[in-house]
Simulated scan of single mutants.
Amino acid sequence: MELRQLYYFVRVAKREHVTKAAEELHVAQSAVSRQIHQLEEELGAKLFLQKGRNLQLTPVGMLFLKRAEVILADLERSVLEVQEFLDPEKGEIRLGFPHSLGFSLIPEVVSAFRKQNPNVKFRFKQGMYPSLIGDVVKGEVDLAFVSPCPEQHEHVTGQTVLTEELFAILPPNHRLAGEETIELLQLKDETFVLFSKGYSLRPIVWEACKEAGFTPNIGFEGEETDTIRGLVAAGMGVSLLPEMALYASGPLQPVKVSVHSPKVTRTIGLIYRSNEKLPLVAKVFQSFLLDFFSNKGLK
C-alpha cells in the first residue's frame, strides 16, 4: 500500500467525485481511478459505490477513511516535527477557530506573535463547534478556539481564555436604538435573526431569551456574522452578537446596544488533543496565547 493511494482515496472521499479530486490533485483522472482500484484490490473490499454522478463511501470505506485521515495527519505532524527540530523558528502552526473570531481576534494575536517569531507560518481552518473539535481530534489542527470550552471530552482538553459580552444589535431606526442599555425582555415581540443550528452562539441567545421570559421568534437564520449584521441593519429583525463580531465597514450597519437582565456572555476556550505532546512551535504559540489573554485582562 502506498501513501499516494491514501492521499488519492481521502481526496476522492471528500469530493465524492474522481474528476474533481483529480483536478485538485493536478493529476489525470485515470491515475486516480487506477490507484483507487489497486487500493480496493489490496484491501479486498469496495470502498465506493456509484450514486448518480457522484461516489458514495461504503461502510468499509467510511471505516477506512477514519484510519487513513489519522495516518496522513500523523505523517504530516512527523514532517513538521523534523522541520522544527532542524529550525524551530520556521515551523507551521495549524489553528482552528469559528468565523466570529476571524474579524479582529485572530489577526491581532497572530500579528503580535509574528512580531516575536517572524518566520513561523500559519495554516487556518474555520468551522463550527463540532467540526473544530473533530479537527483537533483528527490532528488536522494543533490548536483551536471554541465556544464554549468542553468541560469533559475523551480526546480534547483546554482552558477558557476569554469571556466576552454579547450586545443587542438593532436596525438604525429601531425604537430602542438610542438607548445605552436595555432589558432583553424588551425584545420579546421582535423577529430575531440567529445563526443556524450547530453554531454555538445560537443556544446562548436562545437560553438568554428563555431566562428573560420569552421564546425568540426566529425569522431568519444565517451562517456568517456578515449576514446577521446585514439583515439586522436592513430592518429584518434584531439579534445578539459579541463585540468582536461587530467590526465592519460600510454604509449600512446595525446599532449596538448593551443588554442587562440578563447580561449575556460567551466563553471562548483554547483546546488541543489530550495526552499528546504539541509540536514545539504550537506549544510556544499556546504559551504566548495564555500570556496574551492574561496580560490583557480578558480572561
Rank of each mutant, 00 (worst) to 15 (best):
P242Y: 12
S249H: 14
F122L: 12
F103T: 07
A112I: 14
G139R: 12
I36N: 06
P150R: 07
A68Y: 00
S33A: 14
A21N: 02
G222M: 09
G158W: 00
T157R: 13
L39Q: 03
A68N: 01
R53G: 05
L55T: 05
V284M: 11
Q83A: 15
T19C: 00
A177C: 12
H17R: 07
E69H: 08
I169W: 03
I218Q: 04
I106P: 00
T225A: 04
V10F: 04
A22I: 02
L72D: 00
T225Q: 03
T265I: 09
Q186E: 13
D74I: 06
G52T: 09
P262C: 09
P251D: 15
M1A: 11
G198Y: 07
L63D: 03
E207M: 10
S274M: 09
E89Q: 10
R77S: 12
N217Q: 12
H99N: 12
A31G: 05
G269S: 13
F48K: 00
Q186A: 15
K263A: 04
S30V: 06
Q286R: 14
G134L: 00
M236C: 13
I268C: 03
Y247P: 02
D291C: 07
Q35N: 11
K197W: 12
K20A: 05
L72I: 06
P148W: 07
V141Y: 01
K66T: 10
Q159Y: 11
F122T: 14
A282F: 02
T265M: 07
P171A: 15
Y199P: 00
I169V: 13
T181M: 09
S104I: 01
I133Y: 04
P98F: 00
G61N: 04
Q56I: 11
G134Q: 06
K46S: 15
L86W: 12
G198F: 06
E23I: 15
L63Y: 07
A212R: 06
D135G: 09
V12F: 01
E164C: 10
A234H: 13
Q286I: 08
A112M: 10
E89M: 12
P107N: 02
F85N: 13
F9M: 03
E190C: 10
S261Q: 14
I271W: 05
S131V: 06
T215L: 05
R11N: 05
N117S: 13
L162R: 06
I93N: 05
E84V: 15
S261M: 11
L72P: 01
P171S: 15
L246T: 04
E211W: 01
Q126N: 03
E40F: 02
R114N: 13
L101H: 03
L101W: 02
G178I: 07
R4I: 07
G178W: 11
G178S: 14
E76Q: 11
L184A: 06
L143F: 04
N295E: 15
A245H: 08
K121R: 08
E76S: 08
L132R: 01
F122V: 07
L63K: 13
H26L: 03
T267A: 15
V264W: 02
K188E: 05
T215P: 03
L86Q: 15
R53T: 06
V109N: 03
